[in-house]
Design a protein around this nucleic acid. Structure first.
Lengths: 148, 148
DNA sequence: CTTGATCCTCTAGTCGCTAGAGCTTGTAGA
DNA sequence: TCTACAAGCTCTAGCGACTAGAGGATCAAG
């Protein structure tokens, strides 16, 4: 009926310390404890954790997931807010893609122009040292690098 | 002939605290100081900082930039290493692009399928709650989110 | 000589975890 | 029932690349 954090971890595919972290930041509830202070979970928590994992895999931030969870608990409400959140995230993803594609173009140019000689004549080094040659925008904004 | 960190900041387009951070992590040298402990720089530092900024804008990590700087100080060496670094970085960028494009596809599907009704029938929430419907890989690896 | 912009160091915060120390608890087998 | 020991617990610190702020010193112009 109830199970430990390790079992929950296996059922939802989320590491144990991550679950405790989610509890700390308010994504997961503080579950009941045994007399020895060990956490005990039920099936509802498996579902909730799966939801969180899916959202993280899609790149939603923790703050957004908190909102999504709150909204999904109100099934009678309009889903306009949910939609807005998802669209905003989609727009961010698209921006990152655009940024990365422009980086890729530049990197490709650099490596194809490299004559494989000495560092002194290396195109890669030259471009980095004297970026005036290609001063289109990509200066200052987000690069699109990251993680998860 | 020599100038302050603020001037260097403006000439290279890098914020003052960031320059101090670069010094701390060994990308920039510890420059000579005035009697009052203020840093004094010359033109060589402007060039070096520009190199660093360009490399960061292209998404190179600080460790990679350290190597690139060391190599660019050896103009007689072969640029094979430089080339290798740039190609590796390009490959990473391409991986991130691929990952983000698959996320985009999924997000697009979610938002276009949303009927704009109640949360209870919202496609976005359904997909997050029951990811079994689309269980192709994107589970566990890097998401491609980031920064800079 | 005064003003105030700029400089200094140091600490802590960002995000989403992850790693480790050092200790306690639960459970399965003998 | 006892004993291992896997798994749990809390707490702190670290990742990367900065950014923000406190609290005070210094420099250059007028």
């Amino acid at each position: 009926m109830t199970f430990s954090i390790g079992i929950l971890s296996r059922r939802a595919g989320v590491k144990v310390p991550t679950i405790r972290y989610y509890e700390q930041v308010g994504l997961m509830p503080s579950p009941p404890r045994t007399d020895g202070q060990q956490r005990r979970y039920g099936d509802a928590e498996v579902a909730r954790l799966n939801f969180i994992r899916h959202a993280r895999e899609l790149g939603f931030e923790v703050d957004a997931i908190r909102e999504l969870l709150a909204m999904s608990a109100q099934p009678e409400e309009s889903c306009a807010e949910v939609d807005r959140l998802a669209r905003r995230h989609l727009a961010e993803v698209e921006q990152r893609i655009a940024r990365l594609i422009s980086l890729r173009t530049e990197l490709q140019r650099m490596v194809t122009e490299c004559g494989h000689g000495r560092v002194g004549e290396c195109r890669v080094i030259q471009v980095l040292a004297d970026h005036g040659e290609c001063d289109h925008d990509h200066g200052g904004a987000r690069t699109g690098f990251a993680e998860a």
